[in-house]
Amino acid sequence: MTGSRLPVGAALVNRVLGGGILGRTPFARLVVFTVAVFVSMTLLVGSDRFLTTANFQSIAFQLPELALLSFAMMLSMLTGGIDLSVVSVANLSSIVAAMTMVHVLRGPAGAGGDAIAIAAGVGAGVCTGLACGLVNGCAVAFVRVPSILVTLGTLQLFTGLALVLTGGQAIIGLPDSFQWLGNGTLLAVPVPLWLCAAGAAVMAVVINRTAFGVEARLVGTNPIAAWFAALPVRSVLVRTYVTTALVSSVTGLLMVSRANSAKADYGSSYLLQSILVVVLAGVDPAGGSARVAGVGLAVFALELLSSGFGMMRLTSFATELAWGAFLLLVMVINSVLERRGK
């Protein structure tokens, strides 16, 4: 293979894009993209509506859910896998948490008030996430089933369990003070945003500054060499999927709190969006790369876009169409630029 024969399609896109500013690093590309989204939304929607505190506040409440799920997705891709079950883990955890809270409130301990109920609910939700992560991780690490098949299966399994638990109904009647997690503010900053910032910081430290993070990156780069180098490959994989699931379950708690109810099929569009964010951030789905800052910026750009769409009264269907189209477009652009770079 000479590799010099650029396919027609690639050549065309190449010509359209020219050698402009899009040709630099993925992060530079992302900054350009974000600014472009910002400017075009401001122009399209009108600055008097788009550039308002209210708008940015609502973005600040909405962004953390997608951001946290995207971090989880990024982590699974770091080891060269993929976790398609993130949203279903979030939902199952949130349902278990909500049911526990409702149960405790109604039970004899109900007198103890909201605090016990919330503690029990959060504990149960996080434990559910842990269990889900262990199932994914063990199947990938020990049985060595490709992660895509494992997580397709557990996506069904966890959503199914959520349906069985709720009978398809929403769970309501949560403790009032639990709403603070998703809707409150701390020092004038929304609580979810604090949570998201903490998540980003922990993620950055874990990936760059712990043995586990560096080992995960090495496993994603070359799993065979990782085994020969006596890296704890299985434990790295199990921990990766457990961490992914834990982050997902925390997101689930956030979702329950914000909606003040839990349901088996909340947030199903997040799966596509989180993959879109990760690809947009320049993470290689083949493994070995992670970009925390990139994911943060990509989520911000998408939320700008999403709120702009909302203001332009685009339907949810048009938004779904736009997400898909963006995902394809970003991948095509990356592929063309990468090939040109070589």
């Binding site: 199947a139 299966g153 069904q156 399994l157 199914g160 369990l161 349906l163 069985v164 009978g167």
Partner: peptide
């Protein structure tokens, strides 16, 4: 409602 659980298990 058990169908999905079942399919998931079968896949796994």
């Amino acid at each position: 409602q058990w169908h999905q659980v079942f399919i998931g298990l079968v896949v796994l």
